[in-house]
Amino acid sequence: MRSIIQSHATEFALLVVIAVISVVLSLSTDSFLTPGNAFDLLNSSSVNIIFAVGLLVVLIAGGIDISFAVAASVAQYVTAILLGWIGGGGWISGLLIAGGVGVLLGAFNAFLIHKFRIISIVATIATFNIYFGLLMFFTRGVSIYNLPDWLTERVILYEREMADGSWIEITLPVLVMTICVIATWIFITRTTTGRQLYAFGDNPDGARRFGVNIAAMQFIAFGWLGLMAGIGGLVQAHYAQEVVPNALYGRELDVLAAVVLGGARLGGGKGTVLGCVLGVLLISITQNGLNLAGVSPFAFKMIIGAIILAAITLSNSNLEKRLPFMRQAKGRG
């Protein structure tokens, strides 16, 4: 048990914090701790979780990506237009197109990073401006409201009325999110390629000397994030029932904050899918709870910012010193 807590300290801490917040909120509001609310939360967090697991893969491989959210917007827009041309399409063709566009945009980042040795933050800040500038230029900032019916129709996979009268619903975004989370988990923990990504992020030079294909690592990591961005983009269009070219602008930093809160390390080699999902959920739960508690919506972000700042400060200020059971075997053994 001790070793499980030790090796998953971040996830454990997040769970504790989530539990504490939930208890406080459920005492102060009636509607927080209801199944209906829980599933609402899951529905509304789906897109961010999809982005987050994608970004996690890039962070593990030692990179960072600022451009994925606008790439998702590009994927959304291109998909909406292409679907119009081919006369409707369906979820399969939609996901293929959106995912494909996302992978292409991610691969372009990887190309710049690998071929010209541009560090990822510089390369993706450049592509962030290129993708967003071109999207706004070509679309003239015009939104698309006329989407195919299948895309805007709410797909409810399971619904039930609870005893307290609230409805629980599992909608399509949750399904897609679950698939993305599981796929990412399998990919990074259960395949050789995934473990090579960890190794590459942990010690790039060492990985190279042991025959890891560096180019492949970059393309796979940024390609995976591109895929998730494309899928997330389409799901967001479904959820919002419209395609607004700057709707996702700025989302990249919020997702980054959540992923890092979940224990991923800037610099590579560290991070888990569970932590990443908990990081997103912690933020959504706080926001949702504050909402239900009647706090002004304008105050949410401030409180969330303060929580993240506090979390980062605490997690970096030598927790081991304060909690002896978490002390690691350091120095000479």
């Binding site: 473990r195 942990d202 030079d205």
Partner: peptide, 11 residues
């Protein structure tokens, strides 16, 4: 066995 060992500390 390289001088820097070329190991992966997080794994």
């Amino acid at each position: 066995i390289w001088q820097d060992l070329a190991l992966f500390p997080e794994m």
